[in-house]
Computed example of a mutant assay.
Amino acid sequence: MKRYFWLISGLMLLLVGYFGQPKQVQADISDISATPMIEDNDVTDRFQLIVQPNETRNITISFTNYSDAAQTIMVQPTNASTSASGKIQYTTIIKPGQNNLKYAFANMSEAKKITLKAQSTKDVTFKIKIPSGRFKGLILGGYNIYQTAQKNNPNRSQVAIPVYITETNKAVGGVLILKNINAAATNGQPHLYANLSNNQPGLMKNIDVHMVIERKGLAEFFHLGLKAMTADQHYNTVAPNSTVPIGFNQKQTPIKAGTYVVNGTATSGKTKWKFSGKYHISKAQAAKVNKQSTNLIYDKTWIFLLVIGGVVLLIILLVVLIRVQGRKNRN
Rank of each mutant, 00 (worst) to 15 (best):
A185H: 05
K151G: 11
L192F: 09
A171K: 11
Y235K: 02
M211R: 09
V172Q: 08
N236P: 04
M229V: 07
G202M: 06
A228M: 11
Y193K: 12
V163L: 05
K170T: 08
G202E: 10
L176D: 01
L203N: 04
V244N: 01
K227I: 04
A171F: 15
L176F: 01
Q250A: 12
S197F: 00
T253K: 06
N249E: 07
Q233K: 04
L226C: 02
Q233Y: 01
P190S: 06
S242E: 05
T243S: 11
E214H: 12
A239E: 00
D232N: 14
K170W: 01
N249V: 04
I207R: 00
F222K: 15
M204V: 14
N195L: 09
Q189C: 10
N182G: 13
H223P: 05
V172N: 01
P154N: 01
N153A: 09
A257G: 14
Q158G: 06
N169G: 01
L224W: 10
P154H: 10
V238F: 04
T230P: 07
N241R: 10
L226W: 00
N152T: 09
F221K: 13
H234K: 08
G247P: 06
T166Y: 13
M229A: 09
T166K: 10
L196P: 00
K227D: 15
L226T: 06
K227E: 15
Q252V: 13
P240C: 09
N236Y: 10
N153Q: 11
N206W: 08
I246M: 00
V209S: 09
L203F: 05
K205W: 03
V209E: 12
V172S: 08
F248V: 00
Y164F: 15
A184F: 04
M211K: 06
Q252C: 05
K205E: 14
A184E: 06
Q150G: 02
N187K: 09
L176V: 01
G217W: 06
Q200M: 15
Q250H: 10
G188Y: 11
V159K: 08
A228C: 08
N187C: 14
N199C: 12
M204L: 13
V172T: 13
M204C: 12
H191Y: 14
A231P: 02
N155H: 11
R215Y: 08
P254T: 05
P245E: 05
A257D: 14
A185K: 02
